[in-house]
C-alpha cells in the first residue's frame, strides 16, 4: 500500500517533487510492486540481448574453426591499442553509470546529472575512437565485408568473411552504444526535471543494467577480435 499522500494536489501544496509523490501505475499495488516488476522485465530483456550476441559468438566460433588462418591474419591487422583504449573508456562509463544509480538512490540530484552526462560522453568517446581510428582507415584501405573487400595484402581467400564478421559484430555492438546514448540523453532530461529520487529510480537502474550488458559484450568482443592470434 502506498504510504504517500494519495492526493497529488495536496502534495504539490506541500512542495513535494515529482519523485517524492510518484505513484505506481494503477495496475500495481504500490511502488515496490512496480519496481520489482520493472526490474524483472529489464533482466528478461537483458537475457534476450545476451542470446542475440551469443548467436554472433557462435558464428564467430564456427567460422574461426573453419578458417583459422583468415582469422589470425585478419586479427593481426587490427590495432589492439585502440581496442584497449575503448575497453578502458567503456569500463569507466560502467563506473559512472553505477555511480549515477547510487546518486539517484541517495537523491544527489547534481551528481546524478553529472554522472549521466559523463556516461553519455564516454559513449560518444567510444564511438569517436571507433569511427575515426578504426572504421574510417579500414574503409579507406578496403578492409570491408564481402563484396566490398579490396585490401590487396591478404593471406587467406576467406579474409572478406573475417571482415564481414568484424564489421557485423562491432556494428551491432556500436548500434547498442548509440541506443544507450539516446537513453542517457532521455535520462538527463528527466533528471533535470527532478524525476528521480530515492523512491523512484527504476529508469536509471534499468538503463544502467543495459549499459553494463553493452560493456560486457565488448569485454568479450575485444579479446575475440583483437587479441586471440
Amino acid at each position: 500500500m502506498s504510504t504517500l499522500p494519495a492526493d497529488k494536489d495536496l502534495a504539490s501544496l506541500q512542495g513535494l517533487s515529482y519523485a517524492e509523490t510518484y505513484h505506481a501505475a494503477e495496475h500495481f499495488r504500490d511502488r515496490d510492486h512496480e519496481f520489482d516488476a520493472v526490474k524483472m522485465g529489464v533482466w528478461l530483456f537483458l537475457s534476450t540481448e545476451i542470446l542475440l550476441f551469443s548467436g554472433l559468438f557462435v558464428f564467430y566460433a564456427v567460422m574461426r574453426m573453419l578458417y583459422p588462418e583468415a582469422f589470425i591474419h585478419g586479427s593481426s591487422l587490427l590495432d589492439w591499442r585502440w581496442g584497449l583504449i575503448n575497453t578502458v573508456v567503456l569500463l569507466l562509463s560502467s563506473f559512472t553509470v553505477a555511480a549515477a544509480v547510487r546518486d539517484a538512490q541517495l537523491g544527489r540530484q547534481f551528481w546524478l546529472k553529472v554522472n549521466i552526462a559523463l556516461t553519455f560522453l564516454f559513449g560518444l568517446a567510444f564511438l569517436a575512437i571507433k569511427f575515426v581510428f578504426e572504421y574510417y582507415p579500414k574503409w579507406q584501405e578496403g578492409k570491408l565485408p564481402g563484396m566490398f573487400y579490396s585490401y590487396p595484402n591478404w593471406e587467406s581467400p576467406y579474409e572478406p568473411l573475417w571482415w564481414g564478421l568484424y564489421w557485423g559484430a562491432t556494428g551491432v555492438h556500436a548500434s547498442h552504444v548509440i541506443i544507450g546514448m539516446g537513453l542517457f540523453a532521455w535520462l538527463y532530461i528527466r533528471a533535470q526535471k527532478g524525476h528521480f529520487g530515492p523512491r523512484h529510480y527504476n529508469a536509471v537502474e534499468g538503463v544502467g543494467l543495459y549499459w553494463h550488458i553493452v560493456d560486457i559484450v565488448w569485454i568479450f568482443l575485444f579479446p575475440m577480435l583483437y587479441l586471440i592470434h
Binding site: E49, Y158, G164
Partner: peptide, 30 residues
C-alpha cells in the same frame, strides 16, 4: 523470450549476406 533473439541475429546476418555477400552462408565464398 529465449528463442526469438537467436532468429533475430540470424535474419540480420542473412540480410547482410544477401546485401553484401559476406560469405557466412554462401559456400562459394567460404
Amino acid at each position: 523470450v529465449l528463442a526469438t533473439p537467436v532468429i533475430g541475429i540470424t535474419l540480420l546476418l542473412l540480410i547482410f549476406e544477401r546485401l553484401f555477400h559476406i560469405g557466412i552462408f554462401d559456400p562459394r565464398i567460404g
